[in-house]
Design a protein around this nucleic acid. Structure first.
Lengths: 238, 238
DNA sequence: AGGATGCTTCGCCGTGGCCCGAAGCGTCCG
DNA sequence: CGGACGCTTCGGGCCACGGCGAAGCATCCT
């Protein structure tokens, strides 16, 4: 005999996201990096005491993973599915209340980081190209790279070996602004970080602190555009 | 200068789902049918007065559409994206807290109604078959049926003309139990209702009232299995 | 050591929300 | 027309939850 007033699992999860402070924390974590409790407290605009309580609840609820390191406690989203759920919910919010348009429609859509892989137009185009050429094929739980694909990707600076040691996730994370699958999982993460490291992509600082979700806007640098065209035959001018 | 304590859109939407009574209402509406305020009050386990307030908030928040009819007021989910968001969130809940397993794992997964189109194993298999044979190709905003596809589908009792008048939605609604796209939109709806009407599929009564989401379980009848095999070459025995 | 820093626990207060019963409209029916 | 029914609005009570400051641990630095 279960308590009829007990919130079902759906309400319970939603309640975790429903608090403004917690939502700000989660949004901040959508970038994919792990942040300390103090940083999250600042982002959320509450004291350390309050933030501590929130973080405990989020971790307890399974949305966050905690990684203690010295006197810091790093927090990150528990999984790609958590990120996807927040993404979907956030997309719904903007779709329902189209209060604010994208600052510069096309620009913002072009490339961005979702969770921590490439999303937006670039992410979709990349996904299309890599699978279209047979360089990458989705397999249950991850991706399979053809011999040709390995060479191509590694020529762009992507460390495939490292991507393969990372936990695999078959998150065909749906991108609400493009409505097409993009490249997620360990490989997507590796690609994004490699190209950011090599300067092909550059992060833009968050424009508005309380932006829809604290997505990381990205710009493709001229070198990046050249590299993608030469290495992968991906011409983004079109 | 916006109020810094104002809940962002993410938190606002989540808050709508976060209340147990409202969550039960939304879950009940996941079947896709429109329900009256009274029915929803009963489902949620609250008085009509309380339910009225909840429904007003949900409609105000854009999650529900209201359709007054005589002295009744019918409510339904505002869009497929709303359904998808709830679906995703619900999936997250069960994934994180695998409290209760599916009663009979395989059976329950086999076929069910998501929102109001086919989901589960059957939905995915159908999607695969129809697109694999080139009978159906996704186009922005809906589906395109080849000449062959039209004949095949209409032979199974699907009214394509009616499906085309329905509002189109390119909801490649991701199915969390199968993690593959299934057939959504006006066509998906039409297919589901046609096959249910002809007895190929039969609805099962909800087992537990407070089930994860009030998904409609479906069984494929022997006639349905035969019809799918003969008409579409879809053999579900495998 | 001793002190600074990061984080958590505790106790308290304030408020927002949820809930209900009663009353007020609109609609349908005999 | 009167009454039943469906739904909404209003007023009031109640509890949960978010917020803070102070105190308590743990860790790092010198």
């Amino acid at each position: 005999m279960t308590d009829p007033t007990a919130p079902g699992p759906l309400a319970a999860i939603a309640a975790l996201i429903a608090d403004p402070a917690r939502a700000r924390m989660l949004a901040a974590l959508m970038g994919g990096e792990a942040l300390t409790a103090g940083e999250l407290a600042r982002v959320a605009g509450v004291t350390a005491a309050t933030a501590s309580g929130h973080l405990a609840r989020l971790a307890e609820g399974g949305l966050l993973l905690v990684h203690p390191q010295g006197r810091h406690r790093y927090h990150r989203l528990a999984s790609e599915e958590v990120a996807a759920a927040i993404e979907t919910l956030g997309g719904l919010a903007t779709r329902i209340a189209p209060v604010r348009q994208w600052k510069h429609g096309e620009d913002a859509r072009r490339a961005r980081l979702c969770w921590n892989h490439l999303a937006g137009r670039l992410g979709v185009a990349l996904h299309l190209r890599l699978t279209g050429e047979g360089w990458l094929t989705p397999v249950p739980g991850g991706w399979d790279a053809s011999r040709d694909g390995r060479v191509r990707l590694e020529a762009t600076g992507v460390d495939l070996a490292r991507a393969e040691t990372a936990p695999r996730f078959a998150c065909d994370c749906m991108d609400w602004s493009e409505r097409r699958p993009h490249l997620a999982g360990g490989l997507g993460r590796e690609i994004a970080s490699a190209w950011i490291a090599s300067g092909w992509l550059r992060r833009l600082p968050a424009q508005a602190e309380d932006d829809i979700l604290a997505r990381r806007r990205l710009v493709l640098t001229p070198e990046g555009a050249r590299g993608l065209k030469d290495g992968l035959g991906l011409d983004l001018a079109a």
